[in-house]
Design a protein around this nucleic acid. Structure first.
Lengths: 234, 234
DNA sequence: ATTATCTATAGATCTATAGATAATGC
DNA sequence: ATTATCTATAGATCTATAGATAATGC
């Protein structure tokens, strides 16, 4: 277990990167400093040169997971307030919540999903911060779009305010992710189809929940086209 | 720390009962045998007389949480297959998922929610069993009711099969519970209203997601009446 | 006599640090 | 000379057990 010699900064980053996969598949509590050291390919002592305590190291990982991700968010922030944007943005957010968006590392996204869930079982700090910094921004954007859709007549007005409807929409995606995004065998719920294929039914369900008619959904929502737009040629 | 003397069976049950609140607010991993003993009001050694290991004790708690709850389930099982039952049953299931049904102890229900969530982060065993034994049974019943509602014209047919629509409906409730059923301060998401008041908007959202028109929802879904039916006079 | 319970402690493991060693850059 | 890294280990804590003590029921 000799790791070669790196500069302080390089090593710090190498540790965080090397350790992230561990966090993606194990709760912070279960992880031992021994495992962390092994995953990072260094001695336990060296971890403590770079982080004052295990807790600080985990906190640094949290910050990695809260860190930038602007590329895809930027796209969303530029959406105009209309029905097309609503559908596009909701698809994007549901996909990101259920599966991930493919723009950042797979490992990082799995770590994020774990952290949000386990945070909900503890003090909620990570979930609160992630949702405030990332999700809520998109929800605001989509609220604008939903309001426009209501104005234009594509979605009827209702008792529930638009913002609340959007939170409810995203709860579905979050619930699906909590129950099934970890690759458990056998899966917790048998949907009669692979988890990935749940995406477009889930989006349609959410659009109906928002109040959109089936006819409008049919007109505005084309998952296949969206997938191609994202560059995912099959 | 002297607990008086009970028969073996009584003590075993007393331990399980005394320890449940701990499980309801702390993950099994974080709980130590010392804490378990303290919560049960006995010595650590005595725990090991009744359970071969900490893991066995936790497993016994799981079984307590998976245990009977027939009173309210029986009600659901007798529902006929029609639109009224669909609405009633969905309200019941969403409420039970988001808040609990008040028929079993508050503590037990909080423990169950925790166990399902943390199970999703581990091997999924508890979640799988709970959902198979409890939730899936109700989903089947509701699937029958949704099929009838489609037949009767209250809900249009769609690409998504009825059973899948119902799973998607329940995901929303589960996501809400995961994010907000623990009384975290400040809450993870600010809905602009207390969590409890989310119930009827969430049910209406789910009904729309199933495909029910707003007019039908207005006709069939009356949360206030349901609340009174459940005996919850304010 | 049997069974419930406790005190005390062994043994394992986990976090964290002290002190030695090796590589780098001036 | 400074900085990165390791080995070895202290100290705390956690699970589990051995052995002693006290209450119960025949």
């Amino acid at each position: 277990m000799n790791a070669g010699r790196l500069s302080s900064d390089e090593r710090r980053n190498a540790i965080l990167e090397g350790v992230l996969p561990l966090l993606a598949r194990e709760g912070a509590d279960r992880i031992t400093t021994r495992q962390l050291a092994e995953a990072a390919g260094v001695s336990e002592a060296l971890l403590y040169r770079h982080f004052p305590s295990k807790e600080h190291l985990i906190q640094a990982l949290h910050e990695v997971c809260l860190g930038t991700d602007e590329s895809s968010h930027a796209l969303i922030r530029e959406l105009e307030a209309n029905t097309v944007s609503l559908v596009l943005g909701l698809h994007w957010l549901v996909k990101k919540t259920m599966i991930g968006d493919g723009h950042q590392g797979e490992v990082k996204q799995r770590a994020i999903r774990r952290l949000i869930l386990s945070s909900c079982l503890e003090d909620g700090a990570f979930a609160r911060e992630f949702i405030a910094n990332k999700t809520a921004v998109v929800i605001e954007q989509l609220t604008r779009a939903l309001e426009a859709a209501i104005e234009s007549g594509d979605v009827p007005p209702m008792d529930e305010p638009p913002r609340l409807r959007l939170w409810l929409a995203i709860h579905g995606a979050f619930g699906a992710a909590a129950l099934s995004s970890e690759p458990l065998v056998p899966p917790i719920i048998n949907y009669g189809m692979p988890y990935q294929e749940l995406l477009s039914p889930a989006v349609r369900f959410a659009l109906r929940g928002l109040g959109m008619s089936d006819a409008s959904i049919h007109r505005y929502y084309n998952p296949t086209a969206l997938q191609m737009l994202e560059g995912g040629a099959p």
